[in-house]
Computed example of a mutant assay.
Amino acid sequence: MPPEFTPAVETLLRTIAQQGESGAAFKWETGGYYRLEGTDYRVARRTFFPLTGGGYVEENQDDTAPMKLTDKGRKWMADHPVPRGSRGPYVPRRSARSRTVARARAVQRSRSAHGFTAEIVERTVVISCPDNDRGGATLPADGWEQRAMDAHPTLHNVEGPLVSGAYALRWREDPRTDAELLRQSLDIVTSEPARQA
């Protein structure tokens, strides 16, 4: 009777099988883990033991050699073509670099400058002041709100500080993009010397 593999072991076996004749190349990482090259799939060293000990994959003395199925491993895969539950092979996600590039291309919704953080939702920019989370926030200069509305006709209203060092700048009928309004809002609050709350 074939063994009842744990989900982690079955996923590892199916992942190795998916790599085909070239095999699956794993690199050692700290903490007792191996990573499948070119992916973020990490697997604990102990997960290999049932497969190598049971003869389902080739046991290589060289940690850098790709792991391949043995005849016994291929037979197990033929007898169990459909993964049970979440035991399918590892499905690679995009690399961290490609995820970062995709995020960079997305519409900008937040920005930081000089410790101030700005987020925009429906043409309202919420400015969080430095040290807001620790009490004693660093606030923009006194009277900046009226000077900003006088200088920027599309800045409809400034509310704040809302919650100990947060301001809401409400823009109306402004043709600029969200990214431009974020930049402009941060420029407004950082253009004059800050003060302690």
Rank of each mutant, 00 (worst) to 15 (best):
A25V: 12
A25M: 04
A25P: 08
F26L: 05
F26M: 05
K27A: 12
K27E: 15
W28M: 03
W28L: 08
W28P: 07
W28I: 02
E29N: 04
T30N: 09
T30K: 07
Y33F: 14
Y34R: 02
L36W: 01
L36E: 06
G38I: 11
D40L: 06
D40Q: 03
D40F: 01
V43T: 14
T47D: 14
F49Y: 15
P50H: 03
L51G: 10
L51Y: 07
T52F: 09
T52A: 13
G53Q: 08
Y56G: 11
Y56P: 04
Y56A: 10
V57P: 06
V57A: 13
E59F: 06
N60C: 05
N60I: 02
D62L: 01
D62P: 06
D63L: 15
A65L: 10
P66V: 02
M67V: 14
L69Q: 12
L69A: 15
T70M: 04
T70E: 03
D71K: 02
K72N: 15
G73I: 07
W76P: 04
W76M: 01
M77D: 12
M77F: 11
A78R: 09
A78I: 01
A78S: 13
D79R: 04
S86I: 00
S86M: 08
R87S: 14
G88I: 00
Y90L: 08
Y90M: 06
P92E: 00
R94P: 04
R94L: 04
S98G: 01
S98C: 08
S98Q: 13
R99T: 13
R99P: 06
T100K: 11
V101G: 01
V101N: 10
V107K: 12
V107T: 10
Q108E: 15
S110K: 02
R111I: 01
S112M: 05
A113Q: 15
A113R: 15
A113P: 08
H114W: 00
H114Y: 09
F116E: 00
F116C: 04
T117F: 00
E119D: 14
V121E: 14
E122R: 15
E122S: 13
R123M: 03
V126T: 15
V126R: 12
I127T: 12
S128Y: 00
C129A: 08
C129Y: 04
P130C: 14
P130A: 14
P130Y: 07
N132W: 07
N132Y: 06
N132C: 12
N132M: 10
G135Y: 14
G135L: 13
A137M: 07
A137N: 08
L139P: 15
L139K: 11
P140V: 04
P140Q: 13
P140E: 12
A141G: 07
A141E: 09
D142I: 01
D142Y: 03
R147S: 00
R147K: 09
A148M: 06
D150T: 04
A151T: 05
H152I: 01
H152G: 03
